[in-house]
């Protein structure tokens, strides 16, 4: 039972990039996320590597995804339904259950695996100005 599937993952959903450009969710590429973060200000793209995938202990039916996030390799764990898509750098949409993602959203996915590096966002921090690029 999945009462509230976020419809932004439905194939054909229209996504607005920070540049104002509109794209279908299935047409998004790594650069779209990177450029959007660059022009949005306040948001930063992080590389989050999947280091472990297992069944959630607390919430049956969900999957616990363990990530190491960003340059600091911070450990973050999130529980998601197996059909939840993540965007893997250089690969595209990926989920723990591409079959369920296809059923529920119509979105073609790769199989998310340990070692995959996912696009995530975080708040831009002023601590390390080396990331700033003036055009």
């Amino acid at each position: 039972p999945a009462p509230s599937n976020p419809s932004h993952f439905m194939k054909g959903a229209i996504i607005q990039l920070a540049t104002g450009e509109l794209k279908r969710v299935e047409d998004l590429q790594t650069q779209d996320f990177v450029r959007s973060a660059e022009v949005s200000g306040g948001l930063k793209i992080d590389s989050s590597m999947v280091v472990d995938i297992r069944a959630s202990q607390q919430r049956p039916g969900l999957v616990s995804l363990h990530f190491t996030v960003g340059e600091q390799q911070s450990k973050v764990t999130i529980d998601v339904p197996p059909e939840h898509p993540f965007f893997v750098f250089g690969q595209g949409w990926s989920s723990c259950s591409p079959e369920r993602t296809a059923q529920l959203y119509g979105l073609a996915c790769h199989h998310l695996q340990v070692g995959d590096v996912c696009v995530s966002i975080t708040l831009q921090q002023q601590m390390q100005p080396q990331q700033h690029k003036q055009p």
Partner: peptide
Amino acid sequence: VPVFPWHSLVPFLAPTQSD
């Protein structure tokens, strides 16, 4: 037709900093 912002598609993973 609804339009969704790009950042709704990717997880917000805030590094957990203890300090």
